[in-house]
Write a protein that binds this DNA or RNA. Structure first.
Lengths: 262, 262
DNA sequence: CGGGCGAACTAACCTAGGTTTGGCGATGCG
DNA sequence: CGCATCGCCAAACCTAGGTTAGTTCGCCCG
């Protein structure tokens, strides 16, 4: 099971039909915006592009010219060692901007790639810089968003550096569940369609594909996960959370309806 | 050798005598500032504090009230798993602000601690927020600084996730050398006083202290490092850089005198 | 319908790095 | 001066996870 879906993206489009609706609501989660701020964001010039899995959005060494906003589908950040080992650095779900990390730097230090098929809106980088500098609220929202991303990177360092493979994978699955639900409706069992192959899971956890396979089966045997084709769900979320040593603090989600539940 | 120096800090104080001189020059490396920007930074209200090794500057779960600027000595970021394993997330050298990561977030998601004895200047968080929001150049300089920090976190994920212990340690030693020299004078052999115990090196690389010991001796036997008490130097910097698979791009240093040399 | 392909899965074997334990030297303190 | 502490070092042993080399399964496409 757990196959990579060829065009799985459609089930995760943003709530309303405006391409930037998801982005705006995510920014508003971190910083209150005025009506004018929202309008300005919704009117950013952009070009929609449908992308296949594996398509590069940013390449290491590039000087970025556009800032991609993920409308549907999933993307990931990645970098590679000199002898070709790949490490996935982070994941992105619809509504997130992919290039805040590069918006104010000269050249990109890592790659961003589509994980599934999906759609991105490309915004000229100057337009984003302009709105960030001219509208303090928007600028602050962007700053806070990048700070939260940095917090996630830190947790990944801890996860990869100090947790064993079982906790590591459990932690990743927990994070993905919460990232998906941030903004969307929270399902009680946190189940979702996992858009990653076991090889990609390995690259995200610093393990090998065969060990990921072993651990997934271990988690399944323990009753911590249930897999059905590409769908994964969690019969005992609290135990999984314990096994993964997962504490959502590092995601810095303002607790709306979610406080205490996770 | 390689003992932790008890009060080693004094040898790395900032160039001029104003406590914020180092901070200003580091910010200016990322963003040009006006004379007024500089003046405003130099006049930030602050309280100097002398701290012993191990003193906490920020604790996970805290709501930060002040932003510390490292004047002398070294500090590190750290977080701990549920069962007590510690991972060092990043290092800080004099002149760097320690709380940009928390400046605009509600609660801290990790700990910041003194590595050596040293001095910090505590600036009320509101003062820093104010200057960041009112002076676009300063705000941008802070944003860029946090983005570079995030880039370093990403490289650490790669380093810990995908490089073997030998490359991992070599990479860390290379990074520290460059971080120390960014702003100061570059010495040809990149040697320095390493302020970390082998246990701390282990926590920074996701290894154990005894394996760090093995690897250091291995690197020494290979002629890649020379240790003399707490001082470490690099007879063949280029080979060490190759072994560590080190490419300084992720540090995003504007190449001044340094282009091509590293 | 049949071949090709990509992903999941398996098993046997191996090794990088962890664990445990203890010694040794330098430093600091009563 | 003697003791305690801390950091470095060492050796024997062990295991989590890597490596290699497959097989199986489902899906797509001609």
């Amino acid at each position: 099971m757990l196959c990579a879906p060829p065009d799985y993206a459609e089930s995760h489009v943003a709530d309303t039909d405006h391409p930037f609706a998801g982005l705006v609501s995510r920014l508003e989660a971190n910083q209150t915006l005025s009506r004018e701020d929202r309008e300005a964001l919704l009117h950013l010039p952009n070009k929609l592009r449908q992308l296949d899995p594996g398509t590069y959005i940013v390449r290491e060494g590039d000087r970025p010219r556009a800032c991609g906003v993920l409308i549907s589908g999933f993307a990931y950040r990645q970098k590679v060692t000199g002898d070709g080992a790949r490490q996935i650095i982070g994941l992105h779900v619809p509504g997130e901007a992919l290039d805040f990390q590069n918006l104010f730097l000269e050249v990109s230090d890592h790659n961003v790639q589509m994980l599934t098929r999906g759609e991105i809106a490309e915004v000229p980088i100057e337009a984003f810089q302009k709105i960030a500098l001219e509208r303090p609220n928007v600028g602050r929202a962007i700053l806070v968003t990048t700070l939260v991303e940095a917090s996630v990177f830190r947790e990944w360092v801890l996860n990869i550096g100090r947790r064993d493979s079982r906790s590591r994978l459990a932690h990743l699955l927990c994070e993905f569940a919460l990232r998906l639900e941030a903004g969307g409706a929270a399902r009680p069992d946190h189940g979702y369609e996992l858009p990653m192959t076991q090889e990609q899971l390995a690259d995200a956890t610093g393990l090998t594909p065969v060990h990921v396979n072993r651990v997934l089966k271990m988690l399944e045997a323990e009753g911590l996960i249930v897999r059905n084709r590409r769908h994964i769900s969690f019969p005992d979320w609290h135990r999984l959370r314990d096994v993964g040593d997962f504490n959502q603090r590092y995601l810095h989600v303002r607790d709306r309806a979610t406080n205490g539940v996770f």
